[in-house]
Amino acid sequence: MAGNDGRGKKRIKLRSGGSHEGLASFLMLLPAIIFLIVCSIYPFIWIFRYICYNYNGFTATYTGAANFERMLSDKTFWMSVVHTFEYAFYKLLFIIPLALIIAVILHTRIMGSNVFRGVYFMPTVISSSIAGMIFTFIFATKNGILNSVLQSLHIVSSPIPWLTGTNVVMAAVTILAIWGGFGNYMLYFTSGMDSISNDVYESAKIDGANGVQTFFYVTLPMLSPVLKVVLMLAITGAFKDYEAIMVLSDGGPGNRSMVMFLYIYRMIFGSATSTAAVQIGYGALLSVVAAIIVGIVTAIYLFISRKLDDVV
């Protein structure tokens, strides 16, 4: 009984301590919550105000469901959604395996691995707009570096119109995205691998596992929680990319590289090359639709990938 009493007292003490801790946690979270509300939730709600309006920044006219009807029949927007999926597919197809392979190689502590890690990470810290400008020169049809290299290696006989060819522009956009993003994911994977205990690798070694077996049966399963997060970040990131595309191809040629957030940006902020007025109301509606699309994709991914957490 005494023991029970003791446990009871202890429980009460804990509860009382927990209450203080809860309050402290809440107070510590409060600034972040306020910032979240002001900087994220409120702007999102602000958008909803204009989805039924024609709003050019000066005058707002209520138009009922007109924006919604326009959205349903807006071929350019729906093509931009298709292009977004295409872009995300290509990007993820290459960037995740590449980042993982590089991370595994660098994790073996080969000579100069820290230097390589820095070099591979460097594109991440370069502004995507600047990268877009630089790649404009790299992808130039005449005197472009990429075409010169491909021609000197006899891979192609005539220069490829990377930025003016509708059949190759997505490849150009994807190359830029991979160059700019894989260092970041590589770093996530490297950090994840650093947290895997050496004991596991030693056990595998004692059991006679070779490098490939170690990767598939030790590293990859142990990395799965990290992989789940990285994949989710990569998916949402790929769906929201537009800055570098705006500078590199501006959605062209013939809207072939137009992705949905670039289209929305043009609606809300206008375009230097367009004579059309800004359409904040319609852009607001498209933002909501885009958010729903990204949300659905993320939810499907989380459903499919729910087992990745259970591996460890």
Binding site: T76, T273, Q279
Partner: peptide, 10 residues
Amino acid sequence: SINLTGDDYG
């Protein structure tokens, strides 16, 4: 200055 759906004429 109309609210045009899609690309402008240029």
